[in-house]
Amino acid sequence: MSNTLDAIHLLQDKLESLFFNYEFLKKENDILLKSTTVLQQKLVEKEQALEIQKKEYDLLKIAKTIEGSSDNTRDTKLKINTLIKEIDKCIFQLQE
């Protein structure tokens, strides 16, 4: 009978240990999920900021070319032609 009680106590101790570990891991998982969410939001914000910076850079590059820099004149003309083609497409689609 003593062996049975010892086995029950051992089983009870192991179950308590497992339950404690389960609760700890559950809390840790919640913390990690919150951290992941925050980091994902920051990543989205940084990607948006990068996209804005790229657009500003392109505009500045065009402005410098129009200003009289002879280095990027060809690029500016190509960009202007592309923009005109896009505007023409939009006008054509509006007319349909």
Results as ranks from 00 to 15, higher is better:
A7P: 01
F24A: 07
I84A: 00
K27G: 01
L78I: 05
K55T: 11
L60Y: 04
I91Y: 05
T82L: 11
T76R: 11
E56H: 00
T36W: 07
K27Y: 01
L78S: 04
L11Y: 02
L94C: 03
G68R: 05
L39A: 15
L18R: 08
L60E: 13
L39H: 10
L10R: 11
T37A: 14
E23R: 15
H9Y: 06
I8L: 05
I62A: 12
T36F: 09
K27D: 13
Q93M: 15
K85N: 06
T82F: 09
K46C: 01
L39E: 13
T73A: 02
T37H: 10
E96H: 12
S17I: 00
K85W: 01
N3P: 02
R74C: 03
K34F: 07
I52K: 01
L32T: 01
N81G: 02
Q93K: 15
K26D: 05
L5M: 08
L94R: 03
K89G: 02
N72S: 11
Q53N: 12
M1I: 05
E45L: 10
K14M: 07
Q95M: 09
L25S: 07
L43S: 07
E51C: 03
I84L: 08
L78T: 00
K27W: 04
N3C: 04
H9A: 07
Q40M: 13
I66K: 00
L15P: 01
D58H: 11
F92W: 12
F24Q: 14
L11G: 13
D13V: 06
F92A: 12
S2A: 08
D6M: 13
M1K: 10
V44M: 03
N3D: 08
